[in-house]
């Protein structure tokens, strides 16, 4: 074996983080020894090889401890590389589920219907103020043919309430169907307002599916009392006690 071959083998062994010795590779060690006995240069190289190989085996690299985390994060935040807390918040399971995502348009629809009902009532003040003496004084000069009979006005209110209830029931049944797992409050307008069946065109088919709907209490509710007070036939301005 020549000097070049010996040096290549010594370097190759160190590349693999080991030394050529009788323990690691006895045949090669014997070849190297037989060469270095007669070659002083290669003997020096082999001694260095053994020394550095032994030192590498005992070397525990010192990695200085440091914590630059906060410094780096602060610098990165100043450059806009760190997202704000809100933008990295993951959606909750309810929000990420198809049911959870679909509930918000429904709620918006409910809100719109309620606003529409409120506008209808607002634009027909006579239907509300039928027994209000103050409101009657506001429109004293209307022609008699335009003045509506009290029973017609009651019917109008009832139809409006029935329409609103119909829309409400349709929407709330969809909401309660979609929002399984939620406790949804769906008021039973029909029972609450005491509207008779002949004036109510809303379908009752979904009533049985709404288990979360609170049942009507045996005592008359505050809303019932209010309507009873408003739709009394006598003109006397009584007092309402709720």
């Amino acid at each position: 074996m020549n000097c070049q071959k010996i040096r290549e083998q010594l370097d190759a062994a160190l590349d693999d983080q080991c030394v050529i010795s009788s323990q690691t590779n006895a045949p090669r060690h014997a070849e190297v020894l037989s060469h270095v006995e007669s070659c002083l240069d290669c003997r020096v190289l082999y001694e260095e090889h053994l020394l550095i190989g032994t030192a590498l085996a005992a070397w525990v690299p010192q990695r200085p401890t440091v914590d630059l985390t906060d410094r780096v994060i602060d610098a990165a935040r100043q450059e806009g590389l760190v997202a704000t807390v809100r933008s990295v918040v993951r959606p909750s399971p309810a929000e990420s589920s198809p049911q959870g995502r679909n509930i918000w348009p429904t709620i918006a629809t409910v809100a719109l219907v309620l606003v529409a009902v409120a506008i209808v009532f607002r634009e027909n003040p006579g239907t509300i103020a039928v027994n209000d003496p103050a409101q009657e004084q506001v429109v004293p000069d209307q022609p008699p043919e335009l003045l509506r009979q009290p029973q017609d006005q009651v019917a109008d209110i009832s139809h409006l309430v029935a329409d609103a209830q119909s829309a409400w029931q349709g929407i709330t049944s969809r909401v309660s169907h979609q929002a399984s797992g939620f406790s949804v409050f769906v008021p039973d307008l029909k029972n609450e307002l005491g509207i008779s069946d002949d004036l109510n065109s809303a379908p009752d088919s979904d009533d049985s599916s709404d288990d979360a709907v609170p049942r009507k209490s045996p005592e008359p509710s505050a809303v019932e009392k209010a309507f009873e007070f408003l739709f009394k036939d006598d003109d006397s301005a009584g007092t309402l006690t709720i």
Partner: peptide, 17 residues
Amino acid sequence: LARRLQERGVVADPSAL
């Protein structure tokens, strides 16, 4: 590195030689 170690008196296992 080997030379510096030798300068500091560090020697390899002589039995390997």
